[in-house]
Design a binder for these strands. Sequence first.
RNA 1: CGGGGCGUGGCGAAGCUUGGUAUCGCGCUUGGUUCGGGACCAAGAGGCCGAGGGUUCGAAUCCCUCCGCUCCGACCA
Length: 479
Amino acid sequence: MAQDRRQVDAITARDTDFAQWYTDVCRKAELIDYTSVKGMFILRPYGYAIWENIMHILDAEFKKTGHTNVSMPLLIPESLLQKEKDHVQGFAPECAWVTMGGNEKLEERLCVRPTSETLFCDHWTRVVHSWRDLPMLYNQWCSVLRWEKTSRPFLRHREFLWQEGHTLHATPQEAVAETEQQLECYAKFCEDVLAMPVIRGKKTDKEKFAGAEATYTIECMMHDHKALQGGTSHYFGNGFTTAFDITFTDKNNQQVHPYQTSWGLSTRIIGGLIMTHGDDNGLILPPRIAPTQVAVIPVAAHKPGVLDAAGALCGRLRAAGIRVKLDDSDNSPGWKFAEYEMKGVPLRIEIGPRDIENGQCVAARRDTGEKTAVSLDALEETVEQLLDTIHRNLYAMALKNREDNTFDIKTPEEARAIAEGKGGFLRSKWCGSLECELAMKERGGVSSRCMPLRQSGTEGVCPVCGKKCTTDILWGVAY
RNA sequence: CGGGGCGUGGCGAAGCUUGGUAUCGCGCUUGGUUCGGGACCAAGAGGCCGAGGGUUCGAAUCCCUCCGCUCCGACCA
């Protein structure tokens, strides 16, 4: 891997200062711009193009499982937000409020939605009557607002884009199955499209969503060994539906409360993408999500035949369904190489007079830097293979990073030593008590990430209280 | 919200201690030569120095207030 040579001075070296590297990449790859309001970010065309691809792919998946899109209001009356007490306690500290309409003070202040459970519930009280109305399988693509104190591009915006799925079911079993199905949908998406290995797990009571009965998560490890929650799926039981008095008549002619779920994935995942795959030369985008999969660079473009050959090559790739961009600007080839590396384009193709003579082009992989000559006779197949190889290599490298940095720990102090050193996921047993979880934070400096769905089933002892228990849990430092 | 660093053409910086005509690199524009890892030459354009107030004959520079960015904490599905 020829990655030790940094081509782009403008980007801080990743291992020198990871946080600065991250910010540099967001800016230099033209993903994001700052605005005059703290915590509000602009997704520039290239950044938004990544989100558009995420939307298209996920939206199609949601529709395969029967979900439909809706659009809910931006504002929530305070009285509505307060109907479920755990929920309002969780969100009230970070709500922004509208108090004026024109020049007049509003009778009741309105919260800018931080999440829309209450809006969906309010709607459902009016439209759900019979078991025949269930399940309700709704989703919306929108932005929400949370008044965060500190903000970072993609990882923590005050306003961020996401999708929030909200569903209602006749039985708890059905609702739990929905929660699990959507978690798996996110996990597959991360692995198969974003080349991000994830751990499917369940949050502890302390870490679960305000108002939820159970919260499921996919946890990803970033290159700096910190954890990022990639998406969540919640099972609500009938807590909200009881608080909002949503009822339906079941098959036995009984009035009962339905069971509810919600699940969300936000632009934060783009931050995860950057921190999972990026390197010293900038962003690296996995091929299946990259807005541009192949950048074609003509070399000595002024010489006869070069631009034509480059154009023909692009046409063939485009016809094969590959997202390709021809850069015929008058920047030098070297400038273009650096530019597309910074922007994480997975594959670059160079074509110059020498190649044309030999009936070939040169393909350069973004992940390894490796250059190979590609015969024009086998162009489409070779490019498709290379893109596929890049996806698998990115996944494998991310997985190796996670496996190499996951450690078994026996005490909170052992956890602290690792967390304060190189960091990583820390694996132990857990007795299930809040006291021990808090002690891990206090003495170990780590928070619980999740209890993996795939449990070993073995018996061990809680690292804090020493009680015998079987639950596997992962700890770590999170974004 | 606490502690540190920072704010000067589009970007990155120097100038501030010791007040006196706005400086450099990159980028941008035009023309020419180049073109296989961020090319070169020449000529240009572009800045009420984050905002507001004060001190002074005079403020990028000194003093106060505010805002923003950033890092570390706290907080945060």
